[in-house]
Simulated scan of single mutants.
Amino acid sequence: MKCPNCHHSNIGKIGVNQYYCWDCFIELMLVDGKLSLRQVEEDGSLTLLDDLFQESELKADANGF
Rank of each mutant, 00 (worst) to 15 (best):
E41K: 14
G12I: 14
L48I: 14
E41I: 00
E42N: 13
V16R: 10
L58H: 07
G33R: 02
D32N: 10
D43V: 00
M29D: 14
E57V: 04
G15M: 05
L52G: 05
W22E: 12
L58D: 05
K2V: 04
A62I: 06
Q39C: 07
F53K: 11
D43P: 06
H8P: 00
G64H: 04
V40Y: 08
L58R: 15
V31T: 10
F65A: 05
D51N: 13
D32I: 00
C24W: 08
H8Q: 12
S36A: 10
L52Q: 15
L48T: 12
N63K: 11
G15T: 03
L52F: 14
L46H: 11
A60P: 03
D61N: 13
E57C: 05
Q39R: 13
D23F: 05
M29V: 11
E55T: 10
I14S: 03
F25Q: 09
I26A: 00
Q54S: 12
L28T: 00
K59F: 15
L49F: 05
L49D: 01
D23S: 11
F53W: 08
S45M: 06
Y20K: 09
D50A: 12
L49I: 09
A62T: 09
T47F: 07
H7M: 01
V40A: 03
G44N: 01
I26E: 01
G15V: 01
N10H: 12
C6V: 01
G64Q: 00
H7L: 10
L30G: 06
S9H: 13
S45P: 04
L49W: 05
L37Y: 03
K13E: 11
L46F: 13
S56G: 03
P4N: 02
I26H: 03
S36D: 13
L30Y: 02
H7D: 06
Q39E: 14
L46T: 10
N17D: 15
R38I: 06
N5F: 06
K34H: 08
S56V: 08
